[in-house]
């Protein structure tokens, strides 16, 4: 198997004396969808920033495949109404030499052609997410990094967006790293889940993570009830990185 697209090892980061990321490790391989879940303030977006090279970690390593093309969809995009900007113009900011054909093709791929001449400030939440996805696609990415891609979208729309992301992966063969705080919506769309709460609590196949004691502790019994259906595959924890696996995770593996 070829080298991973992205690999983080033992990443440590603190802000104002508080540890935000504690020896975090993560791997994204070609064609793989990895989902980062965790409660608010768990450090998910911070980890994404470190992985993208926007913040330097205090310790640890982040290795991106040389020349890796990343398509990034930030968590929040709030363009001031004083800036007149249509969707078309917004997409053209993705880089030099993006032609009209590529632009409409990207919008078509995400199903948002109809908003091409709409001011960015007046598209709906779901449309905005799709437009941002289109901008990420314009980079012809080998890796898509999506920070809360279904934010501000109703439940039906969320399922549609996850399906779209799955399709994009299948069609383009790119790796996907996404952030979500809702495991059971993302479950069908992901290959691998990393549960983060400053440190990596547990990681592995979505089903096994959903039954992991650390996960249950973090998300409480309500979430758990919706998910704890299967009882097989107890040992199905994909080790992401031996260094960061918690004892709890290993116990789970043996349980």
């Amino acid at each position: 198997m070829s080298a991973p697209l992205l690999e983080a090892r033992e990443v440590v980061l603190g802000f104002a004396g508080r540890r935000v990321l504690d020896r975090v490790g993560l791997v994204v391989n070609e064609g793989e969808i990895v989902t980062l879940i965790g409660p608010n303030g768990a450090g998910k977006s911070t980890l994404v920033r470190v992985l993208l090279g926007l913040i330097a970690p205090d310790a640890g390593h982040v290795a991106r495949r040389p020349g890796l093309r990343v398509g990034y969809m930030p968590q929040r995009l709030a363009v001031d109404p004083v800036l007149p900007l249509t969707v078309r113009r917004f997409l053209r900011l993705a880089g030099r030499g993006i032609d009209a054909a590529a632009l409409t093709a990207a919008l078509r791929e995400v199903g948002a052609e109809h908003v091409i001449d709409t001011p960015l400030q007046s598209v709906s939440g779901g449309e905005l997410q799709r437009v941002m996805l289109a901008r990420a696609l314009l980079r012809r990415p080998q890796l898509l990094v999506l920070d809360e891609p279904v934010q501000g979208v109703d439940v039906t729309g969320q399922a549609e967006l996850y399906r779209l992301i799955g399709e994009l992966r299948a069609r383009r063969g790119c790796g996907v790293l996404m952030v979500s705080h809702d495991l059971h919506l993302v479950m069908a769309a992901t290959d691998h889940v990393v549960c983060l709460n400053t440190h990596v609590c547990c990681s592995g196949h979505p089903e096994s993570v959903s039954r992991h004691p650390e996960y249950l502790r973090l998300f409480g019994p309500r979430e758990a009830a919706a998910l704890a259906v299967y009882t097989h595959h107890h040992d199905h924890v994909h080790g992401v990185d031996g260094h960061v696996h918690t004892v709890a995770c290993r116990e789970r593996g043996h349980g």
């Binding site: 920033r49 993208l52 090279g53 926007l54 990343v70 990034y72 930030p74 995009l77 363009v79 800036l83 900007l85 917004f90 900011l93 901008r135 990094v145």
Partner: peptide
């Protein structure tokens, strides 16, 4: 429009 997006 978005500094971090631009940086990436």
């Amino acid at each position: 429009v978005h500094e971090e997006l631009a940086q990436v």
